[in-house]
Design a protein around this nucleic acid. Structure first.
Lengths: 251, 251
DNA sequence: CGGTCGGTTGAAAGCCTTCAAACGGTGTGG
DNA sequence: CCACACCGTTTGAAGGCTTTCAACCGACCG
């Protein structure tokens, strides 16, 4: 059912907005009626290329998306991870930016919404515009945390921090308890400013310390408290997204 | 003349907004009439502490300001640099965030504006709200570039990139040609995720390559093209701020 | 069954850090 | 006016975290 899946994603997006902003019934209806098109991407597909101007945003229906940039010699840096219910590049609707691309990390389905549509509905509702504004600010807060993480922490803490953060955010989108992390070690490396080889070795030390278990595409955090301590993880920067979780009790 | 200096700063801020957004005469008048208070800070003064909630933003009238975060063991990461005409923490007016602090890098004067005032005037003008929105997005674009810089470039490129960026941004705020950079090597280290010692050594290689000259608080870029090449510097992410420069002709 | 992808391992090298000490300029107090 | 203290810069030596290069392994897929 393609129609219901996009509806589901839009509702997740609405929930995300409501994590930091108040919406009217009218706003919710407007969002739910948003026209667009569903697109499927295979894993590892760069569906928005660096430097390529786009006229639509990508609402993530299912899967996992990386917003990235890269150096001229091809070294990639992931700037943000998008989970279902996120609009991976919401900011481009209001300030065109060609410095980042979008990559599907797993098989992913996207709901494309035209920039012009988003601007229209933002023009029609101040509360929606504010909600979009805050949504971008929330992303920026996460970006700031990444800057601290990459600039000032060693590989062990970096990985721990990303796992803690992703665990909380993913849990918000998908309400299951154990959490699936379909990130390859190469993706982790690109997100954390490290090499895949070093990610591998550091992951081993975390496993050996009984902090987590890894399967193909799965992570199970065995000792949340210890991991959070290594990461110096303080979820307050997630701006209440986490507060909206169903049954946390984990920090 | 304290009054005129704050007026000057507000006009710089207006120019900054006009770099990406259209403002009405009414908007400009509203901004110019903004009440607040002038505060002077000595160099190295943390005037907004980490985790401390604030009810006002800081418009930089004169000097240089770092927005920073730090790890529990005190290692600091500068997240953004603010030059005169910037509001260093505009986003806090719309989404309270306690994860970053503000530090004066030199003797600095700030014009404090209450959050409530900013929200009021944003509520009174859609174009102002949008201008604030875009201003935050422009900051976020710079933050993304920093993430790439710190995550994926070596110390030489990192320094070169920061110098190119700061050169362009500073030049916009202060219209003189040679540019004063009142950053200590420790500040550079905190901004780039390196140690002061390594900054020092890397700076020497840049000097020896005849790319720049350093005095106390001054940088003179001798070979812009070469420096920009090392940095892989592409000013497009600065979102037309640079386009508003008086007399560039340097890239 | 061969190919591909992601993960794992080893050895060597390199970039950057750490620790310590010394240097020069500036401002202050005697 | 000089002595002293302070701050930012500079230098050396040693060590460590991370990278690089290369190879191998195991699982999944056609």
């Amino acid at each position: 059912m393609p129609h219901s899946s996009q509806q589901h994603a839009i509702r997740l997006f609405i929930r995300r907005l409501e994590g930091h902003s108040g919406l009217s019934d009218q706003d919710r209806q407007t969002l739910e009626g948003l026209p667009g098109s569903l697109v499927n991407m295979p894993a590892q597909c760069d569906f928005v290329h660096l430097g390529q101007p786009v006229d639509h945003v990508s609402l993530i229906v299912d899967g996992l998306v990386a917003r990235f940039s890269q150096t001229e010699d091809g070294k990639r840096q992931i700037l943000a991870l998008g989970v279902p219910g996120d609009i991976a590049d919401l900011s481009t609707a209001f300030l065109p930016a060609k410095i980042s691309g979008l990559q599907a990390l797993t098989r992913t389905t996207i709901f494309r919404i035209a920039h012009s549509r988003l601007r229209e509905i933002a023009a029609g509702s101040r509360s929606l515009l504010e909600a979009f504004y805050r949504d971008c600010l929330a992303d920026a807060a996460i970006g700031n945390q990444w800057l601290l993480n990459i600039g000032r922490r060693d590989s062990r803490s970096r990985i721990a921090h990303l796992l803690c953060e992703t665990s909380m955010r993913y849990r918000r989108a998908r309400q299951d308890h154990g959490f699936a992390l379909p990130l390859t070690q190469l993706h982790l490396a690109d997100a954390l400013g490290l090499t895949p080889v070093h990610i591998n070795r550091t992951l081993q030390t975390l496993r050996n310390a009984q902090l987590l278990r890894l399967g193909r595409g799965f992570v199970e955090i065995l000792d949340w408290d210890m991991l959070a301590e290594i990461a110096e993880f303080n979820p307050s920067y997630l701006n209440d997204f986490a507060a909206r979780m169903p049954a946390p009790a984990m920090c």
